[in-house]
Amino acid sequence: MKTSRLSLWIFLSPVLMWLVLLIVLPHLDLFIMSFRAKDEYGRMGFSLQNYVHFFEEPIYWLTFVRTAVYSVITTFFTFLLAMPVAFYIVKVVRPKYKGFLMVLLLLPFWVSELVRVYGWMILLRESGVVNFFLLKLGIVDAPLKMLYTDATMIMGLVYTSMLFMVVPVISVLESLDDSLIEAASDLGGSKISIWREIILPHCKPGITSGAIVVFMLSLGNYLTPNLMGGKNSLWFTEQIYNQFIASFNWNQGAAFGFLLLLLSSGIIWAGLKLSRVKLGEVAS
């Protein structure tokens, strides 16, 4: 078919404006800003000071490392929880309930993250609903401190990003032919070996794309660590926020932002390389 140049330009020009003005230039600016700092005379100029500062202050790089490690832990627990749920919906439950369960599964994730975190807060805080029942039933004598701990924060992160693991795993499980599992079972394969040899290898692309999205969302999350984490579970996004809004040190904040961007792209790149999945496949 003959393509007219006019239609190409009509389609492409808004797209180019979007990508250049709102994606490329701002991130270039972020990169440049992170290398600028005031020298001893108070003049702005090129400097590595923002990055040096990051490595010299333990609180900064410790927060960075903690954010990365906790995001990995979150991704792992999300996978542990999502895998059986997805398996149940696709392979175990009677097909007539499947549609209903899928709707039920997706529904909470349409609701704003803030509302979900708020729900956990009124459940778990010391005057919260869970403690009310625990006290009432005489299981504990004094309210338990459940909110503002690392474990609760990780649970919150798992809860928040659950969907992005369950959905891709469900879609790969649907393409797994039941007869493979039946054959393995007939030939005497144990449950463990069926999981290890058949189900998990088949699900690898889904698990990878799920893990990438969950990891990225946890790394960049601000609400959940801020509202559910304690004093000692500072998240790196909170450091960025502090630099930008509280200290008004945008250059330092830009350096932090760039480091976080580097970390998330690095891990995503490694994940894609290890599993040989393309970015476009993760997206779809």
């Binding site: 994606i23 991130h27 972020l30 990225m216 969302l217 926020y241 998330s264 997206a283």
Partner: peptide
Amino acid sequence: FLMLAPLVIPGVILGISQLLG
């Protein structure tokens, strides 16, 4: 590739780079 980039850029980073830009 550039079009897919916003999928892997954390929202906080998008926010600060828009602010800076």
